[in-house]
Design a protein around this nucleic acid. Structure first.
Ligand SMILES: Nc1ncnc2c1ncn2[C@@H]1O[C@H](COP(=O)(O)OP(=O)(O)OP(=O)(O)O)[C@@H](O)[C@H]1O
Length: 704
DNA sequence: TTACTACATGTTTTT
DNA sequence: CATGTAGTAA
């Protein structure tokens, strides 16, 4: 069996799989088979007799973890199920479910993981309670600031007394309510591993092999956890894989230095993989050209070029449009073409963009064109109001002391229990030292309100009893939907309500799957499924079988590949993002994001931008992205061709030189006075003056 | 005290 | 455009 695993690999990959005597760093460019090598290593270890549960593999997304597990299952059979394969966060969650009470800070193993929206809500409330003026914080990202202070990313927050008070208040609230946020999953895990020798040694003993994918995006806390788990011993088998050029999470604390530190701290052996197996070479040369613009790169990395044996392939297509809607229609028509004439499956096609909001225009048009699609991220399925409401009912029914979730749904649907009543109940419950739910019983209010409270309490009790009696998970959702009045409320909303009910039925599907996936009684199953959902993203929900075009940010498709990739809205201020262009580091990270985007494509790559675009409901005019121009340059000759819809196809022309006389359709005769990248500064007659125009633009011609 | 309506306010990227 | 908040009617 070992041989079969190794068979599919090239020499370098095989060396990497077989080297298990000490720390190893596999450092290699996109599509060179890093993930495949890591997967094979796990399979190889199991096949050569290592107990699967002694291997810990840490991935960046849950989807990556799941796919890796499936592939290992294929290679070595059900033994793979015993192996630990998860994200750092899932690992932390699993760890804390067992050990959190040892912190003795008031949290117990029944804690609930809250998501970012919940955290923001708590922070907002804390701000109000502390009487802090919101405006003293830099704009919108209070959550990010609190989080950065919490985990110690000094570069990302402005030190202030208010911020510290706010974090303290927020943290108190979490602990009082037995809640844990994403950061806590890592922080508490690290704390316990640091302080508790017995536990630490247990895990050090348990994991003989530790493997980490996407190492370039680990942060300092995760690196500390790794060090503790590996016992800091250099003879331990710890293998990390990464590509410094694909480090795109610095905003979340991804630490570039981890790469070098790892080699230094562990005296790690380094293996590089050089051949790309994903893309045709015209796509790869675009990626090579782009990333060369970055000056701050991993040592000796700059001489690296991606190359494959897959031929030169189709030239990447550069397209400019007058209006955003033209761009969207072009993409829709191109997709239809790819599906109808090239036999592409929708799921092999991805539309990638820098910011979530850019998906909207595509969604609307795809519906018209009847193109099936799935959006990764943005308003995630699990963040939808109706989904979170139903989940809150489930959580409260499972554990009546969960005040946070009680507050969410006590007046949804409307039960005449408004802010004032809820606030008083909360104060009262604190006063008598009981949960809000229990406090209802002895809470003294106007008779009408009391009646409403009692009937709410009765509903929840009914759900709790159903859980005690081991109701089916999907029946529980039905019960909640029907008996809470939630369904009626949605039905009264009309069309939108129908959509929402659809979403809840989808959630019901997730619960139904959990029914079979997990062991134990209803309570235990619920706990597991709620845990899983709390760390799930849209990309995870997409079960492989769904044949839909993918709409996603670049960040969410890290590690994935598609036959055809559309990089859309390639415009300055959007990509690179306006906030990133003032620092070199920021700009280089944006460029790495573009590099990740290009290297997702196997066969077809389209880069598009539009002169005008609606944002905030207002029309804006944008210049093409510098990344668009930087890469277009590799394409050489001009090939202007006019097509319908006011759009224009062209390729860069490097044959213009300073001093050339040119003729412009609108501005007439002019002379090139400077060339900045692919933009020419041209002096026209006095009436038009100096203009900047993209070289190769069809309106611009060289005059003899 | 609740619930509705008008208004303003703000979008980078995520486990 | 879409969400949250402030102000007002009931
Ligand atoms: N030796 C090989 N022979 C054939 N195909 C291979 C080989 N190694 C990798 N591949 C294929 O190349 C593609 C890219 O592999 P993989 O996703 O592991 O690369 P990666 O280095 O992890 O990429 P990224 O950096 O983008 O995450 C996959 O489709 C994989 O099946």
């Amino acid at each position: 069996m070992e041989l079969k695993i190794l068979e599919k690999l090239n020499y370098e990959q095989r060396q990497a799989v077989k080297y298990n005597k000490g720390p190893l760093f596999i450092i290699a460019g996109a599509g060179t088979g890093k993930t495949m090598t890591l997967t094979s290593k796990v399979a190889y270890l199991i096949a050569t007799g290592v107990a699967p549960q002694r291997i810990l593999t840490l991935t960046f997304t849950n989807k990556a973890a799941r796919e890796m597990k499936e592939r290992i299952l294929d290679m070595v059979g059900p033994a793979a199920n015993m192996s630990w394969i998860s994200t750092f966060h899932s690992f932390g969650l699993r760890f804390l479910r067992r050990h959190i009470s040892i912190l003795e800070n008031g949290l117990d193993e029944g804690f609930v993981v809250i998501d970012e929206d919940d955290a923001k809500k708590i922070i907002r409330d804390s701000i109000k309670e502390l009487g802090i003026d919101e405006k003293t914080f830099p704009s919108t990202d209070i959550y990010n600031q609190v989080s950065a202070l919490k985990v110690g990313y000094e570069r990302f927050y402005l030190k202030s007394e208010d911020l510290e008070r706010l974090l303290k208040k927020y943290q108190e609230y979490l602990i009082d309510n037995n809640l844990v946020d994403f950061d806590d999953l890592i922080l508490y895990t690290l704390q316990i591993l640091t302080k508790e020798k017995t536990i630490r040694e247990h895990y050090q003993e348990a994991f003989e092999y530790i493997l980490v994918d996407e190492f370039q995006d680990t942060d300092h806390l995760q690196y500390e956890i790794l060090k503790l788990l590996s016992g800091n011993k250099s003879e331990k088998t710890i293998c990390v894989v990464g590509d410094p050029d694909q480090s795109i999470y610095s905003f979340r604390g991804a630490r570039y230095e981890n790469n070098l530190d790892f080699i230094k701290d562990y005296q790690a052996k380094v293996i590089t993989l050089s051949k790309n197996y994903r893309s045709t070479n015209k796509i790869l040369s675009l990626a090579n050209k782009l990333i060369k613009e970055n000056l701050d790169r991993y040592p000796n990395y700059s001489e690296k070029h991606l190359e494959s044996d897959l031929g030169s392939g189709y030239p990447p297509v550069f397209r400019k449009f007058n209006r955003d809607i033209d761009e969207v229609i072009y993409v829709a028509e191109k997709i239809t073409e790819l599906v109808q004439f090239d036999g592409y499956k929708p799921t092999e096609i991805a539309i990638l963009y820098r910011s979530n909001y850019l998906s909207r225009a595509f969604e609307e048009t795809f519906i018209r064109y009847q193109i099936p699609y799935i959006v990764y991220g943005g308003v995630s399925f699990f963040q939808r109001r109706e989904v979170k409401d139903i989940m809150a009912y489930v959580r409260l029914s499972l554990d009546n002391s969960q005040d946070f979730f009680l507050k969410r749904i006590i007046n949804v649907p409307k039960r005449k229990l408004g802010n004032v009543t809820v606030q008083r109940l909360e104060e009262y419950s604190k006063y008598i030292g009981e949960s809000m739910f229990d406090a209802i019983l002895s809470f003294d209010v106007a008779a009408g309100t009391k009646k409403e409270l009692n009937s709410f309490s009765k509903i929840i009790k009914k759900f709790s009893e159903a859980i005690e009696k081991n109701i089916n998970l999907s029946d529980l959702i039905d019960l909640i939907l029907n008996e809470s009045g939630y369904k009626e409320m949605l039905l009264a909303e009309g069309d939108q309500g129908i959509d929402r009910i659809q979403n809840i039925l989808e959630l019901r599907g997730v619960f139904k799957r959990g029914e079979f996936l997990y062991e134990g009684d209803t309570k235990e199953k619920l706990t597991q499924i709620l845990d899983e959902i709390s760390l799930m993203t849209d990309a995870d929900k997409n079960v492989a079988t769904e044949d839909k075009v993918i709409l996603s940010t670049y960040h969410q498709v890290k590690g994935l590949e598609f036959k055809a990739v559309f990089m859309v809205a390639m415009e300055e201020d959007i990509f690179p993002n306006a906030n990133a262009i003032y620092s070199k580091g920021g700009l280089e990270e944006e460029r790495r994001i573009a590099y990740v985007g290009i290297t997702r494509a196997k066969r077809h790559l389209f880069l598009t931008h539009s002169d005008s675009r609606f944002r905030f409901g207002r029309k804006e005019y944008n210049r093409p992205s510098r990344f668009y121009l930087e890469t277009m340059d590799t394409m050489g000759r001009v090939k202007p061709s006019y097509l319908g819809g006011g759009s224009v196809e062209y390729e860069a022309d490097s044959s213009f030189e300073i001093g050339d006389k040119v003729e412009h359709q609108l501005f007439g005769a002019g002379k090139i006075v400077a060339i900045e990248g692919e933009v020419a500064v041209i002096a026209f007659s006095a009436e038009h003056g100096i203009k900047k125009i993209i070289l190769g633009h069809p309106s611009l011609k060289k005059s003899k």
